[in-house]
Design a protein around this nucleic acid. Structure first.
Lengths: 204, 204
DNA sequence: CTATTTTATAGGACGCGTCCTATATGTTAT
DNA sequence: ATAACATATAGGACGCGTCCTATAAAATAG
């Protein structure tokens, strides 16, 4: 259900067409929420039917009309309601884990090739993130815009942190398998290398 | 496409019914690949039509037949082929990031409440994982079984590592927002607190 | 000058996943 | 004794997402 709300989020800044929205997605949240063009238009239609946006139709001779979507009050409050709603965390299906889980059917060198390929993929992603970071830290204007840039960087940081952790895990798995170490990891091992923090300070 | 291959994976160990498969999923890979009962049966039908499994039909008076699925040679090689195929990493859509991204419409205390709720959810998950870990380290029999337990623990370790990183990131975001610090994080910040490793050793 | 890209919207087909419901019997809880 | 759960399979409806295709004109690249 997040795509519709992300659209409302963008429209809360200023009115946009479906095409504008596609670009907005591609330029800001694409890293953690890629949006399909078709899906945007379909969602827009549903959002419109629900009364969360109004269409400003701009005719173009011969071609299909351009439709600029304006957030209504109902849309604004729907968005804010959703923003306030705690979501339960997603189960992040990672197909690679299925491969690893059933990799008993592979030879050790095949498994290692798979793991190393995965690691290089993560490295590529991490480098891509770094590029995004470098690009985004160049222009900072007013305070409101600054806040938005920071938000953007926080979500980017999420991506970097998680992929960095992924990379670290892959490294250790590769090391263990290369050394033929099939002993089960300890819980301390699981939390990360030198980390002695037990995380027993749940303040809630 | 991973569900079908996961099913083939389970069937490569021993023939199972749809019902058995559902239990197998729930007891071993549920943490990173929850499987819907209906979806399992549907996939089983498709896998059967593709010739990757054979049905052993066991009639039950009045009730629907029990069908035990046996992996065929075609199925075995399909599985091994897939296991050898490098997959590109998934984009892990995390709805919470959308909320954070558009949280400019919330008051600071509302944002903090959201963040802390998320953190407690992660803590719950982490504790659940710890329970799974404790349960799985109790029984270790033969060497082949040991290998499977270790595989299981490696995937669990993946979950622990990533959620641990998630938690750490949340903690820092909470801290920054509580201190009203809206300055953009540095790249060093992004890679994790005291971590000076630049990860420039891409051997591929 | 031609080919591609950009601007702009939208439908079709299909895959995967979730939730709900139906059917039917035996076995445990309360 | 009755309610709930386990065993076992399967269809319907629906949502979200992806990929492909159509249409059409202007702008830009080679």
């Amino acid at each position: 259900m997040s795509l519709k709300h992300a659209i409302l989020g963008f429209l809360s800044v200023r009115p946009l067409s479906g095409y504008d929205l596609k670009r907005a997605f591609d330029h800001s949240v694409q890293h953690f929420w890629p949006a399909d063009q078709s899906q945007i238009y379909r969602s827009l239609r549903q959002i419109h039917e629900a009364g969360f946006v109004e269409q400003e139709v701009i005719p173009r001779d011969g071609k299909l009309d351009v439709k600029i979507y304006h957030l209504t009050e109902a849309g604004q409050s729907e968005l804010i309601d959703w923003l306030r709603t705690p979501l339960d965390p997603q189960d992040n299906r990672e197909p690679f884990l299925i491969q690893l889980f059933f990799s008993g059917l592979l030879r050790q060198d095949e498994l290692l090739a798979l793991l190393k390929h995965q690691r290089s993929q993560i490295d590529d992603l991490l480098q891509l993130y770094r590029g995004v970071y470098n690009a985004s830290t160049r222009e900072v204007d007013d305070a409101d815009f600054q806040r938005r840039v920071t938000m953007s960087l926080l979500t980017l940081e999420y991506g970097v942190r998680l992929n960095h952790a992924y990379r670290g895990w892959l490294d250790e798995v590769i090391q263990r398998i290369e050394q033929g170490d099939w002993s089960p990891p300890t819980w301390q091992n699981m939390l990360g290398q030198g980390d002695a923090d037990q995380g027993e300070s749940n303040d809630r």
